[in-house]
């Protein structure tokens, strides 16, 4: 399981920049209307929720509880939108919602997990700018 300290270690290796490669903060900025406290709250929620949700995705796959993947993938859409990850992850989450063959799921779960992990690193950096 990825921990917050793991993320902070990864973060130190990345140069600080506002031009994030993975996350897109346009929606958060529009929604917050300049409310920094809200930006912090939602970014923290994203970090925490995306860790638990991707961990759960992987767990459900490993334990072959495929029926639990569909509702989780649906809920994750709301999680990823806040960091502007829709264009990167929407299609993969949709694949999880519409899946027919379990063996096809793993590839999408891996992509979602990787993108969320990188997004969390950038989200941590963003938090430090607030």
């Amino acid at each position: 399981m990825t921990t917050k300290s793991d993320l902070l270690k990864q973060k130190s290796a990345i140069n600080f920049t506002h031009n994030f490669r993975i996350i897109n903060l346009d929606y958060l900025m529009e929604l917050s209307m300049g409310d920094v406290k809200f930006q912090k709250e939602l970014t923290n929620q994203f970090i925490e929720l995306s860790i638990s949700e991707t961990d759960q995705l992987n767990l459900y796959f490993e334990t072959a509880e495929y029926h639990k993947i569909q509702p989780l993938a649906h809920s994750m859409l709301s999680t990823i939108y806040i960091m502007g990850l829709g264009p990167k992850l929407e299609s993969h989450l949709q694949e999880l919602k519409d899946y027919s063959q379990p063996d096809q799921l793993k590839r999408h779960i891996n992509i979602i997990s990787d993108v969320c992990r990188e997004a969390r690193v950038e989200a941590e950096i963003f938090l430090e700018t607030l």
């Binding site: 929604l31 409310d35 709250e41 939602l42 929620q45 994203f46 929720l49 709301s78 806040i82």
Partner: peptide, 13 residues
């Protein structure tokens, strides 16, 4: 809403 982030976003609005 069953998603906490969606709930927070709507609460803010």
């Amino acid at each position: 809403d069953d998603n906490k982030i969606a709930l927070s976003a709507l609460k803010h609005l």
